[in-house]
Amino acid sequence: MINKPAIQKIYVVLSKQQDKADFELLCRILSGLFSYVNLTSNLYLVAENLPESMPRIERIQKDVGKFLKSNLFARLYLHFVHSVSLTTAKEIDYYLYYYYQPLKRAAGEFDKEGFIHQEVPRLILLPVIAPDHRVESASLIGLLNAFKSMFMLPCLYLDKTTFFLSKDKELLTRAEKIYFGNDHSREPAEIACNLFNQDLLDQSLSNLASKAVFMSVPCPASLIVSANDGKVYCCMDAFRKNQSLTDIYGKSADELMEIYYEHNHSKRDCLRCRRRSAEFFAGVPVSETKKQYIGALLAHFETFRGISGR
């Protein structure tokens, strides 16, 4: 009935410094793109740290709120991804007071609306924290507890320097999701790739379990926007290879989406991308059960490669 796929996920890779006019343009384009996102969609704002990016995150959240307020059928999960160097309880309090509480307050009207309508709020905030390697588990647990008490759904991003935290069961039970990166990089672009890959892996595992979907189907319709140069990518594979679709300059969101829909997504090697995401996670400290599932998925890809010769 409706042929054009709705955008499921938008990743905005924020830059350290941002020209004011460029950022205004980015916000205008993003607001226009909301008309093309799925009724339930995800927006990832990937920043290096909160202190530098806070005004921009607040601004984008405000635009999200504006869209949701005038479109009651839409729901959005807003993931704000960032490193935090906090190690002490005092630093945690500081972060809560100056960053997370204001973001939560700005989403308060959706909590109220959800309560009145006896449903989950249409705007859900998910802080994705890349913790410092010096952090103590107890401090991190304190932060995650604080998030939960504010009805935010905290996630963790662990890399090689913080893999040790994945052994802390108490910590794991408090996180909505644990993301992994298998290097030391804290570059937003790298983190965005790893988040995407992990979601793609989870989707492949679910496809394998349901046996209902072909593994070669493209990933969920996504857009990746690089705030640094305004380039727009149609998937994470294109982002990784710097094969941009277009940029945000001199065009409207409608024109941008026309280019997106004209672009032949099927020319990309989606199966290979899925296989790579599974290979990537073979080496990270996920649970034994998940490792087995990943093993089964890799075996499936091998069989497919044998049959198709790809």
Partner: peptide
């Protein structure tokens, strides 16, 4: 039918 797994945007609905 608009379910959890339906792909539908504001723009897609307008088109419909």
């Amino acid at each position: 039918i608009v379910g959890q797994d339906t792909s539908l945007s504001r723009s897609g609905f307008r088109e419909l």
